[in-house]
Design a protein around this nucleic acid. Structure first.
Lengths: 233, 233
DNA sequence: GCAAAAGTGTTCTCGTTACACCCATGC
DNA sequence: GCATGGGTGTAACGAGAACACTTTTGC
């Protein structure tokens, strides 16, 4: 179902189901949040998360994936349900129950996709503007969740390209936790998981020496998960 | 809004909002789950979680509290949103989006309340029968959450009376994690939090010597939370 | 006096933290 | 040859795990 101004609030006094997405990216050493100029009334023109009504023929996860793909062109990304907001007066237009999803994407990958058809921008996650309705609460919940989950599940990779260097990964975690992390200890811990595959090639864009590229071994991770393994950063 | 057979599915093809509750208790040394004989079609007579439709004039949290109070008579209990299930075909009767809450109560306190008007029973959490729809998934999610949360928030108390002994509390945690916990280490850790108030009285129901009663210092806990404290069991 | 549960301290281990220098390279 | 970021090891510390005996009391 495309994003349509006319059908956004089909009827008053009806219960509507929506999905909103908190989309995190990482760029220029900073954790970023993707926000949009709302296109529909009420509150058109204000900043908001991206979201859409879920049709009667659509499942929640499918709707979340659809929205994310429409916006970023990405399909295989980290996207999970977060929580729901459904108070009766949260949206003045109708009673809308919003199931919130959160996502981690490589913010560079979405260039050239329809993110530019919508008015959208990446903002540093600690400088999020006032968003419509309860969207700022959604963001708060998502950041808390991100920090929580990043401690025991390997998700830093989701914000980087498939091949990345350890200094890059370190900076992602520093961006998430907003504090410096000791590089030697970080290397030890992250390599000790055995979940990184060291490649032969180096990335030389940030130094003359060059830093080795790594890949996340998601196959091994799946195996470990099945045998009860639990990652700890 | 009372639980009514007639109004449960007012219209076909309409979106309905429901709240379902995963209610944990503790009894006879075991973690228990409260399940109910479903009273409405479809699937009437089968075991399910307790839930109800959320009316247009009711917020989600309010609905959850209402349901819990209707069933157990309890108001001031641990009750938090867990997740939502909203796939289009999850309920054959209509499209019902269910926001799931989870709760920890003292299973002894609810005696004499309307839990007996409904056909309900406490079942050991690891012997949950087949429940209707996706309710078994809800329970799974809740147990995972309980174990997760119990590690870093003091919630074992919620399953015990206001005054409890350390051996009792230990048994609660053993029931949650399904493994023996060293009593000396447990005492050290739990007392080190400073969140337990030792009372002068002893509970002599389980031994001749008697065990000192304690109370959870929730006021102190609130203060600690505000100053960024984080409990770890 | 004995059975049954409550209560108590110390050692060992391992993971976390802190910390400073050499390496490779392009210019 | 030097500036820049990449890469490495060790010592100190603290939290968690393992472990066994004494205390109290009702019978």
């Amino acid at each position: 179902m495309p994003f349509s101004k006319k059908t956004f609030y089909p009827e008053k006094n009806k219960l509507l189901l929506a999905v909103d997405c908190v989309i995190f990216g990482y760029n220029e050493g900073e954790l970023k949040l993707l926000v949009f100029k709302r296109e529909v009334d009420p509150l058109a023109g204000q900043w908001s998360l991206i979201g859409n009504i879920v049709s009667n023929e659509e499942n929640l996860n499918d709707a979340a994936h659809r929205i994310l793909k429409d916006i970023t062109g990405l399909e295989e990304v980290f996207l999970e349900q977060l929580c729901s907001f459904g108070d009766m007066d949260r949206d003045s237009g109708a009673r809308v129950v919003s199931v919130v999803y959160w996502s981690l994407i490589q913010s560079s990958k979405n260039q050239g996709f329809s993110i530019e058809n919508h008015e959208a921008k990446w903002v540093p996650f600690d400088q999020v503007p006032d968003l419509v309705l309860d969207h700022n609460q959604m963001v708060e919940t998502a950041i808390t969740k991100l920090r929580d989950v990043a401690r025991y599940r390997p998700i830093g990779f989701e914000l980087l390209p498939e091949k990345f260097t350890l200094p890059q990964l370190l900076k992602v975690y520093e961006a998430i936790y907003q504090r410096p992390i000791d590089d030697r200890n970080f290397r030890k811990k992250i390599l000790a998981t055995g979940l990184l595959i060291k490649l032969d090639t180096k990335d030389k864009t940030t130094s003359k020496k060059g830093a080795f590229l790594y890949k996340f071994d998601s196959e091994k991770y799946q195996h470990l998960l099945k045998s009860g393994y639990w990652f700890e950063v």
